[in-house]
Design a protein around this nucleic acid. Sequence first.
DNA 1: CCCATGATTCAACAACTGTTGAATTAGGTG
DNA 2: CACCTAATTCAACAGTTGTTGAATCATGGG
Lengths: 227, 227
Amino acid sequence: MPQLPSARPRGPKPHRVDADQLLDAAQEIFSREGLRGASLRAIARQAGCDPALIYYHFDSKEAMFTALLERRFPPLIEDLRRVSDPGDRRPTPLRLWDVMCIYHTRLSHNPGIRSLVRGEIVRGTEGIQELIQNQVGGAALQVKAILEQGIARGEVRQDLDPLLSTFFLVKLHLEILDVLPVVASRLLGVPPGAAVAEGERAWMQLFWRGIAADPTAPVPSLPDLEP
Amino acid sequence: MPQLPSARPRGPKPHRVDADQLLDAAQEIFSREGLRGASLRAIARQAGCDPALIYYHFDSKEAMFTALLERRFPPLIEDLRRVSDPGDRRPTPLRLWDVMCIYHTRLSHNPGIRSLVRGEIVRGTEGIQELIQNQVGGAALQVKAILEQGIARGEVRQDLDPLLSTFFLVKLHLEILDVLPVVASRLLGVPPGAAVAEGERAWMQLFWRGIAADPTAPVPSLPDLEP
DNA sequence: CCCATGATTCAACAACTGTTGAATTAGGTG
DNA sequence: CACCTAATTCAACAGTTGTTGAATCATGGG
């Protein structure tokens, strides 16, 4: 008995939906709904395909989430490596400001995913811990190296714990990127974009005063962040 | 036709499951599974009742979550009010350290809920924004007042933005409480509790150096935090 | 004792979920 | 043209979800 023509033909399509497009859709839906709230049906709708196609590219929902995380970090670490090169002889505050610029450029979007990841870190979710520690740890080591070089050059306090200070610098910067825009209009009475720029500059200056070997040395003039 | 005896008799029980007990269970399940991942059936199991009882006390799952948030903040604000009283003439760093002690005491548990709340803030979830801003804003104003008094007394830099600095102080402290324990063993090679204590002390000292009017003034000796 | 009220469970609803095996198709190769 | 492979959809599975109306019960008051 001949089958009725199907609503949408099966088989490969001229405009393929590849793994990257699925991950683009995943990023948007995970960001908006969270890990548990995001459904594969919603991700498939966003990508314009059937949910079953997701299983062609990924083993499971969790595998897809892991793949999403894995494709995010490398450019950040490579950018940071350039700044942490000991051959960079600029004053430490300018190098740290570059670090902030890199984080701003690379991470000033998709706070939803980062909140999600942070939530999973706090929750102690296995599997993700390993992945994130490998990635974040790599970035942290670059920033730590800059602080260690600053100590060696006499610009940064000898009693500083470079790793802990790296945690402070990066973590508060992420709060400025993720949370400050949302509370800016209520708390500070300024638009979100201006709040982030102001917050980053203020944080850099406070942080530098907190770690500088010479407490009376002025903070160098900081160039504007790229938009 | 007489009905079979039910598995569990209906009607009021000697040991009642009241709204607070439901919220206790909710806090545990929301903390562990997140807002979307937490189910009313899991909350009811934790409380030892039927899921339908939740609807006797709350209009919906979302209403329950809102009620959970509403019952958390007040003691924090009251504690902070005592420290921000202008009658407190102690040096500003000791008052700010008290603030840190208060946050430590009141918030050093249930990072899961706070991550969840932070995620909803970042996501821009309506309804929750208003509630959280009212609560968090109240606490922030107390801390801001201490900074303003410090400026007036000449202990804190005149060019400081008190509200932004309050955001810095509190936000990084929450990261120390929530995230530092999780990454401590991998990143710092110390147990989580020690990492938090060390992190809080280091942050207080860095923050003070960053905001002090006299950059050469030493940070006063800080008493130990309560366990 | 009777009745009312508030507090509980039961059972069901409609909808959704992650996942899978099979059917179908597009395109490339020999 | 035939065949193969990879890529797609379909339909279904078993389970879960938030929510609700009705049945049942404990307790207290008249």
